[in-house]
Design a protein around this nucleic acid. Sequence first.
RNA 1: UGACCCAUGGUGUAAUUGGUAACACAGCAGUUUUUGGUUCUGCCAUUCUAGGUUCAAGUCCUAGUGGGUCAACCA
Length: 554
Amino acid sequence: MEPKVSLNFVEEIVEKDLESGKHASIHTRFPPEPNGFLHIGHASSLCLNFGLKTKYNGKCNLRFDDTNPSTEETRYVEAIKKDIEWLGFEWDNEFYASDYFDQLYDWAVVLIKKGLAYVDDSTAEEIAEQKGTPTKPGTGNEYRNRSIEENLDLFKKMKDGVFDNGAKVLRAKIDMAAPNMLMRDPLIYRIKKEKHHRTGDKWNIYPMYDFAHGQSDSIENITHSICTLEFENHRPLYNWFIEKLGIFPSRQIEFARRNLSHTVMSKRKLLQLVNEGHVSGWDDPRMPTISGYRRRGYTANSIKNFANDIGIARRENIIDVSRLEFSARQDLNKVSTRVMAVLDPLKVVITNYPKGEMEWVELENNPEDERKTAHRMPFSGELYIEKADFMKDPPKKFFRLGPGRMSRLKAGYIIRCDGFEEDENGNVTQLNCTYFPESKSGQDTSGLKAKGVLHWVSIEHAKTAEVRLYDRLFADENPLGHEGKDFKEFINPDSLKVIEKAYIEPYLTNAIEGQHFQFLRMGYFTLDPDTTEDNLVFNRTVTLRDSWAKAKGK
RNA sequence: UGACCCAUGGUGUAAUUGGUAACACAGCAGUUUUUGGUUCUGCCAUUCUAGGUUCAAGUCCUAGUGGGUCAACCA
């Protein structure tokens, strides 16, 4: 049976264009500006553009939209490429808008010669003033009537560096009274005597987005140029340039940017979080960046599945982070190795276990894996379990240890709590238990039934590690949704909790970066690059679903 | 007092393009389980409002309401 999958609105357009013969094949592009790191919103664009390429056997370029030298850097280019590769996308060509600066300049000259562009000496303030408002038409100025010759001369001088920054701009001559403000003689070139990360000092003028993006699309014969909704009002201008220049008619298609709850997504705001030290960097595991998620332990598949599952449309949206977390758990459940680690230790002494003895028990690596492999871990008479797994006076629904109660130690034995010790404040410091030798995991003949199953480590054999627990960066679901309040007011002060000394089974000392683990009953974890020879650092990617915590909260 | 766009369960996306609301997440209740994980099952919407066209409207038309984008020498 063919699974019936409906097309999204972009695929519908593509299929129509292919069927009608408008295009023999399609060509898309992913066009980041190298002024920051890629975030999860970009994953949607990536999946869309590269997904179209794969599905319709077309091509997809990677094009850096580098027309503003003041914000762009080579390190961002490198980071962006690394993220795309990590996600597993392969671009057909790597291009830069700056590759086209000469062509763009020539096209600007063409517009001037056609009387469709002019040099304006007004200040930014004057231009804004003359532009009018959405409800008030703009007015022209005397520069609008400059002769073609004068414009040609002035524009060349702008290029040659005769004028200072801001002294002059080149504008398209369209309609100062247009209802669409973007058509009110938009700026297409500005003077910027700045070093460009690729062209160096060659240029004194740089094209604006509107005079670079669509033109780059045309140069590359992009058939479907997909961007976000905020460029919708630019489309008439996009088409105007294509028409006036008579170049390849790429088609711009807009979709709604994906928003995630409990975070912010714009590069500008993410940059603020980085610069003001609210996070450790673009790849801080709490950041919604691709590199942040990678460091946190998300798999490339979980991110792509998420992007594909939420789909695309043209309406505003805020996607619940739990949808992303579901994606992470779904993939991690299949690929992560089960290990034991105790984050908040409580000592357990097994009083009837032979003093000084130990034995190896086998822990299944992954119950979801057909291969049924396992690794060994040491068991002994003195263990750590999680503090939360014991209660002095447990309610009936509590399936773990309490005075007189039994639990199974995962992969080990069933134990019974005979008593506990506490300090002067009533804090439990030690459990005294007996174990049942005939209840050993896999060869249990005891006939005993224990409802709870606990994770543990042998005190003598355990290693230690630093463990970082993350929570959502913003306490509020929509930090941007409060008028008059800065989004940073909603930063969650408890978004990072560090456990300096967690106890881990020795097997974990072999962990390598990029490997995924499930700390049994605690969540999914991965090694952080901060790890050194004598200090292992683990990041919690996401917790396990915890229906007990929910039940308890009621 | 403008132009353009959008409106389907708590959330996201669908609906053979006019044929009687689907899938997933979240939530709730069970099931399975040597992870309170996993699995499996059940429950959870008269499609913003009001008119209209039609045998038939979430899909088309009109009006209204609500929301978004645009007045950067950013992209």
